[in-house]
Design a protein around this nucleic acid. Structure first.
Lengths: 205, 205
DNA sequence: CGAAACCGATGACAGATGTCACTGCTGGGA
DNA sequence: TCCCAGCAGTGACATCTGTCATCGGTTTCG
């Protein structure tokens, strides 16, 4: 009753994008109608080709990552289902993705056949989250950090001294120290640097 | 006068590995004779199938990365040319790779067609290094860090306090501080944490 | 041999950092 | 309404860190 599923593929790695496109083309009911190498390009392509499903790499150059694209697509093309494919499956990414309306979240370790199956499932209105990533996300739990704590920790992530962080956050150095101290305590880390690492691992940053 | 080029493909991401294998199979003179999802598996496969060219992902699970595989292959299968494919092209990786006898170093942003061309070139005895990565490596230059400085910086990379680092390095805390201080100065960083970041970026860690 | 570089360590010092207590202010929620 | 959590700040204190000078030992190179 309907034509093939129209797929948008976004991945900055040409080798992978092209190769996946080739493999998916073996499936009669899937058609890759557009490809993109960055988040911005993905949005432009989506507007132009109006795909049924957008398969997005999580990390792409240019600041606009897969989740951002998904969030934008939800308003621009509400009928387009989105899914994320990624190499590094941090729990927090999964949460962000689901919050952005993403319906599929899979690691790149899956085979192309499985990917095709999942694309069909997502297109049909289903959801799919890699079981292992889901387990990680559940065990990681919710972030205990308040908004400001996370914000300040983010600004301190590059290892800059507190003075710099305070200036960038437009806060008093003392306040910054307090936030970093409480964040460090909540993550039971030795100092803010390990706190950053832990928060990153948990996907809370 | 000779058969197709026998290729070993090693990448932990099944999606990519399978897809690249499929694309390379379009080339009449290339044949993917073995695939591996880890460094150890790659070595086993290489021993069993004796490929002409090994295409290795830089980062693979299990401690044995692409460069380690290449180094091992040089003694086990001296006739097998090796090349590295990677997503993150840090200058230092390139150096390590070349030192390990790798003859090709390309980012995953290349197309499959180009990869095929490069495989042929490497098999014919040529070398190929991505121009952009080469430029980065040259501009990054050699590491100014001494062996101990790099070692201590590595141990301090997780943000652990100096006492821990000293214990793990079996050094006096004072000595650790001195090494970290000189390393920080050489990298003109604010503190050891940013020094770690800079060294990582340059591939000196 | 002498010089230079690296390794390992100590001591001293200033400044950065982590921790705690305490003060206001604000916006919910019971 | 009161109470609590979060936000923003100050002050004080102990500790950690970064920096410097200095020492003795070793390798290596000219």
């Amino acid at each position: 009753m309907s034509g093939p599923i129209r797929v948008l593929l976004a991945d900055d790695e040409h080798l992978i994008r092209g190769a996946v496109a080739a493999l998916l083309s073996y499936e009669d009911d899937l058609r890759v109608v557009a490809q993109a190498a960055s988040g911005a390009e993905a949005l432009a392509m989506a507007r132009a080709h109006r795909p049924d499903v957008a398969v997005l790499d999580l990390q792409m150059p240019g600041g606009v990552d897969g989740v951002a694209v998904a969030a934008e697509l939800r308003t621009v093309l509400p009928d387009c289902r989105t899914m994320i494919v990624t190499s590094h499956g941090r729990p927090g990414h999964l949460k962000r993705a689901l919050a952005a309306g993403v319906r599929g979240f899979v690691p790149k370790t899956v085979s192309a056949q499985r990917l095709a199956v999942i694309i069909r499932s997502v297109h049909a209105g289903g959801r799919y989250v890699d079981p292992e990533l889901a387990a990680d996300a559940i065990s990681a739990g919710d972030s205990p950090l308040t908004a400001r704590e996370a914000e300040v920790l983010e600004l301190a992530a590059d290892g800059a001294p507190i003075g710099d962080v305070a200036r960038r956050a437009s806060l008093s150095p003392g306040t910054v120290r307090n936030y970093l101290s409480s964040a460090t305590a909540k993550l039971s880390a030795d100092n803010r640097h390990t706190a950053v690492r832990i928060a990153r691992e948990r996907g809370w940053l």
